[in-house]
Design a protein around this nucleic acid. Structure first.
Lengths: 192, 192
DNA sequence: CCCAGGTGAGACATGAATGTCTCACCTGGG
DNA sequence: CCCAGGTGAGACATTCATGTCTCACCTGGG
């Protein structure tokens, strides 16, 4: 049966393994294949049947991260309405993937290679485009470049994900904290 | 001579090795002891004469990072004047150490151990105290906790250091970008 | 019942990084 | 000149994660 294509359970298992690995590696980026396997409730042998090796696993996680990121970008409808609201929607949509993104963000070996997954470039462009749109519409200040605002958003997402998993801040405040700091800043203001 | 204490050149060499290692590991956190040695212009044997092993090297880097951080905190005189200005001074003073801090920030194995260097706790407290002072004085908004503002500052420092080393943003804008985003946010405003 | 396919457990080899050691060099001070 | 101390080069053993393999199990469908 299986030689007619991957079994129906395979995809579910694979996804489950991927989620477990993401959750574990987010906390302990140096976890061994054995730890990853046990975290997913399977044996190391079975883990190797799903992913050829650690490299393949990380690549699969990268693909998953890109996929969830682009799904969040789609769901946030970046082109609609005020850029401010679009940023808010984006952060809200991306929150579930923030842990995985934080892991991939620190896995800089992914980017030092000659061929980095161009999915990240696509994502960068879309996010930077959102900030550029906000600048053109007069919503965002123009002395901070879209590239920096994009990097800053990534950094805040990673910081918040890390802080939440450490219990230093409440998970329910995730979106509010990031959006308010990124857009509003820490200064108190009189107006509105 | 050397048995009377460490030779005078030892400290300089050790510091030079530490700086080189910090610069290299900031770019490539998985660099081997051999790469670290060659980056410092010494042999692996000599590197092992300075630091018992990779673990000792990372610990020394951690101590260096804490030291530079506290030196920056001292130089920024966090208790003087408006908190806004103190934040500005802090970022300016901490900029040279940002690369090293970014490396240590991702080296989360340092924190998962039972005994984390309490230097970080001291630093956290001082930074959070600065934000708390700004809130009490009415300069900073109170709906963002000092703990989150502290984490956000770390995240922005790491993001900026990484973006600068990747050439995505200009090094000369480092302090301005961080301070303006952290305090002012991305929104354009009419008033001053 | 029987068996094909997936699984877990574990043995085994491999490779890489590490830590330790020896030895020759060379350099500067006595 | 001589030599003590630091150094570089390299051999060597060790450790650990990884990748591959075999084998027994057991489970569900024919």
């Amino acid at each position: 049966m299986s030689h007619l294509g991957y079994p129906c359970l395979m995809a579910l298992d694979r996804d489950h393994v991927l989620r477990s690995a993401a959750a574990l590696l987010t906390r302990k980026s140096t976890a061994t294949m054995d730890e990853v396997a046990r975290a997913a409730g399977i044996s190391r042998a079975t883990l190797h049947r799903h992913f050829a090796g650690r490299d393949a696993l990380v690549r699969a996680l990268e693909a998953l991260g890109i996929e969830e990121c682009e799904a969040a970008l789609d769901a946030a409808r970046l082109d609609e309405g005020p850029a401010t609201d679009a940023v808010h929607r984006l952060v809200r949509e991306i929150e579930p993937a923030a842990g995985l993104l934080a892991f991939l963000y620190t896995e800089n070996q992914l980017f030092e290679g000659e061929e980095q997954n161009q999915g990240w470039t696509r994502i960068d462009d879309r996010v930077a485009g959102l900030f550029r749109r906000g600048q053109r519409s007069g919503e965002f200040r123009i002395d901070l470049t879209p590239a920096w605002l994009t990097e800053a958003l990534y950094g805040l997402l990673a910081s918040a994900a890390w802080a939440v998993s450490e219990g230093r801040v409440a998970r329910k405040d995730f979106t509010h904290m990031i959006v308010e700091l990124l857009l509003g800043g820490a200064l108190r203001r009189e107006e509105s």
